[in-house]
Every structure is written in structure tokens, then in C-alpha cells.
């Protein structure tokens, strides 16, 4: 009896904690997935059924007709917005990741005067929200007459202080000095060493930086809002927002906004599904070391 009791308690405890953990996870899952489910169901309905049927279950399945309507509306301006978003975010995240990697690597591997000062200045940049920078950026771009252009959104999106921070931490941890010495002795130039040796070792961190950056630019709504006036330059977030503000007067836009919102989250979902493997690695490595 006295031997069996503790074992029984132990099992019961772990069962309890496991159930509790599962419950918390289940609640979280429901919490996060319900809006997406709602969005998917809503996007599959005609505008008539949208208000009159159960919001969490299907009526007639009109998803493809709705997508067709969305693509046809105003000469397919929505597709143009999607393309813009991919260009702004994909382009900025790609170049931004390379910049952050170079910067972080240099800060980690080279010794020069003012290194820590530079690093700290970059680090303090992490604390400044993008929102607060939008208006000053607008005034700067106004000075050079470059507002309402592709570059007015693209250029400010290239920099990412958090990426620099992450790249430095990771380069310190994962790129051994001995390896760089060996490369130098073998006659490899600094630039070549960086691209051929360091980036390979830093790859998981670079994916993390890329994803962070991608999401940050995708969600940076205020900058395009302030900079852009030409509808053909809008990213999809701003375009859908503009439509959504007009729902009172043009009620048919509501349906388009919902379908558009569903389609606009797909690139993010795809990016995460493809890269989550690396993402997990990168996060873990950064956390332990």
C-alpha cells in the first residue's frame, strides 16, 4: 500500500497537469483559429447570406465566385496590391536580411573603435516603434519630393535593428574565429569568407531574421498610409483598409474586404509553413547561447 500510494499520486498528478496543459493549448488554438475560421466561412458566402446565416457555418459555397468578383473589381486592383505587398515585403526582407547579417557579423567578428557604441545605438533602435518614425520619414521624403513613390515605402523598410542584434548574437555563437582564421590562411578574402563560410553557419538565424522582417514590413501599415496617394502603389493592407472605410457608403465592398483579407493572409501562412523548421532552430539557438 505504502509503496503503491506515491506512484498513484504521481500518475494522477501528471494526468492532471497534462490535462490542464492540453486544455490551455486547446483554448488557445480555438482562440486563434476561430477568427480565421470565421473569415473563411464568411468569404465563402454571398453578401445576402453573409448577414442572414450562421456566421460560423457554411451556407452556399460561393468562395470561387467571390474570388472572381474580387479579382474583377476595378480592373483587378486587388492583384496589383498583392503584387505590391510581395515586392515591398519580400524585397525588403531579403535585402534587409543580408544587410542585417553583414552588420551583425561585422559587429561580432571585427574589433574596431566604437563597436559597442554602434551596437548600442542600433539596439536602441529596437525600442523605437515604426509608428513613431512614419511622420518624420514623411517630412524627410517630402523635402526631396519623393513621397508617393515605390521607394518612399521600400527604402525605410530595408533596415531592421532587431535583425542586426540577432545576427550579432548568432554570429558570435556559431561562427568560430578559428574557422575564419583558416579561411584567411587559405587565401579567402573577407567578403568571400562572409558569403561562403559565415552565412552558411548563420543560416537558421538568417531565416529567423527574414521571417521577423517579413512580418514587420507586411504589418507596417502606417508608413504606406502616410506616404502613398496612388492606388496603384498600395500594399494590400492599405488597399483593404481603404475599402473598409467606405463600407458605409458602398456596402458591397464589405464582401470584397472579407475575401481580400482571407487571400491576403495566405502569403504569410505559406511563408511560415515553409520556413517554420528553420525558424524553430534559429529561435532555440539564439535563446540558449
Amino acid at each position: 500500500m505504502s509503496v503503491a500510494a506515491p506512484a498513484g499520486t504521481k500518475i494522477r498528478e501528471s494526468l492532471l497537469s497534462r490535462t490542464a496543459a492540453t486544455l490551455v493549448m486547446a483554448v488557445c488554438t480555438v482562440y486563434f483559429l476561430t477568427p480565421i475560421w470565421w473569415l473563411f466561412v464568411g468569404a465563402s458566402k454571398s453578401s445576402e447570406q453573409f448577414t442572414s446565416t450562421n456566421p460560423l457555418w457554411f451556407a452556399d459555397f460561393d468562395l470561387f465566385a467571390n474570388i472572381g468578383d474580387l479579382f474583377a473589381y476595378r480592373d483587378g486592383v486587388f492583384l496589383r496590391w498583392m503584387l505590391n505587398s510581395v515586392l515591398y515585403t519580400g524585397g525588403a526582407a531579403l535585402i534587409g536580411t543580408v544587410l542585417a547579417a553583414m552588420c551583425g557579423y561585422a559587429l561580432a567578428k571585427y574589433r574596431f573603435r566604437g563597436r559597442e557604441v554602434i551596437f548600442n545605438v542600433v539596439l536602441s533602435g529596437v525600442l523605437v516603434p515604426a509608428t513613431a518614425l512614419a511622420l518624420p520619414l514623411f517630412l524627410l521624403f517630402s523635402k526631396v519630393d519623393a513621397t508617393n513613390t515605390f521607394w518612399s515605402v521600400f527604402l525605410p523598410s530595408l533596415v531592421n535593428p532587431f535583425g542586426v542584434y540577432l545576427a550579432r548574437i548568432y554570429a558570435t555563437a556559431s561562427v568560430p574565429d578559428e574557422l575564419l582564421e583558416a579561411a584567411r590562411i587559405d587565401g579567402s578574402g573577407e567578403v568571400r569568407t562572409f558569403f561562403k563560410v559565415a552565412t552558411r553557419l548563420m543560416f537558421p538565424a538568417l531565416v529567423t531574421i527574414f521571417l521577423f522582417h517579413f512580418v514587420a514590413v507586411w504589418n507596417n501599415f502606417l508608413l504606406p498610409l502616410i506616404m502613398l496617394g496612388d492606388e496603384r502603389l498600395f500594399p494590400v493592407t492599405l488597399g483593404l483598409y481603404s475599402w473598409n472605410t467606405q463600407v458605409n457608403q458602398i456596402p458591397e465592398l464589405r464582401g470584397l474586404v472579407i475575401i481580400g483579407a482571407l487571400l491576403s493572409i495566405t502569403p504569410l501562412v505559406v511563408a511560415f509553413l515553409f520556413l517554420q523548421r528553420f525558424w524553430r532552430n534559429g529561435l532555440g539557438a539564439g535563446a540558449v547561447k
Partner: peptide
Amino acid sequence: TGPNGNGGTYQNFFN
């Protein structure tokens, strides 16, 4: 173009 006035366009005008 842009969002409606109170949705951001007025603020853009002020900027």
C-alpha cells in the same frame, strides 16, 4: 486616393 477622411486622409492632408 486613400481611405476615407477620418480613416487617414485628413491626417495625411494635415501632414
